[in-house]
Design a protein around this nucleic acid. Sequence first.
DNA 1: TTTGTATTTAACAAGATAGTTAAATATGGA
DNA 2: TCCATATTTAACTATCTTGTTAAATACAAA
Lengths: 124, 124
Amino acid sequence: MDTLSQTFQALADPTRRAILAKLATGARTVGELAEPFDMSLPAVSRHLKVLTDAGLIERSTEAQWRRCTLRGEGLRAASDWIEFYRRFWEQQFDRLDAFLKRTEPEPTVSTKSPKGKRRARRNA
Amino acid sequence: MDTLSQTFQALADPTRRAILAKLATGARTVGELAEPFDMSLPAVSRHLKVLTDAGLIERSTEAQWRRCTLRGEGLRAASDWIEFYRRFWEQQFDRLDAFLKRTEPEPTVSTKSPKGKRRARRNA
DNA sequence: TTTGTATTTAACAAGATAGTTAAATATGGA
DNA sequence: TCCATATTTAACTATCTTGTTAAATACAAA
């Protein structure tokens, strides 16, 4: 699977996002991460594997514990991808905005138009 | 499924991302969108359903065609989520940066340290 | 109303996902 | 060495995903 798909796939699960949220406050062991969930340890362990494979967390061994750390860099590609579209839709709003300003320069509502469909009006 | 999971899930497929990419250049009919893919029309139709359910595209009917439009607003929540972590990891870099500046104030490489592990050094 | 084009729905199969419990592995300490 | 703790792997199951083909639906035009 390509990297981007893998990242988005990893993020498409609330348990995994909760794990990342927890890790944003500092490194944690598997047991600590599993504690709040109503789910077996092996299940959490596999979620951690998914996150590791996606490059979103790193794990280091300390005695019998595996310490998990958030690896923000793993979000880079996904962030870039989504930002491209964010720009796109903001641009759309700008265009719409400009269009509405051109089309309806006066904020006064015209009631004269005979028959035709109602003109778009801004909500915000 | 929660909204965020649904959005990320929708983005976790290269075909669907390609469809969004195409739509970023303008509205398209189902047939137009399906054309470049080596995949049956029903398959594409279902991808479009996933994107629609996730609020990432809108569809309007024009004669026998269904026109699809990108709906950037649907990415808002996902974008916000990911941006939070982007800030987090950039902050981490800042901290690392500050740490390295404190630890190694002189850019001169010290070759005197006896034995100890090599000190971290910046790459960028 | 018949026909052709555009698209969706139904029914199905293969493979992925996410959970379970039980067993295996790794490490520290008595 | 033997035991307790931490975590992963194995084996299994239920459900979801994604693709296929065939049939159904929607609309325009002849």
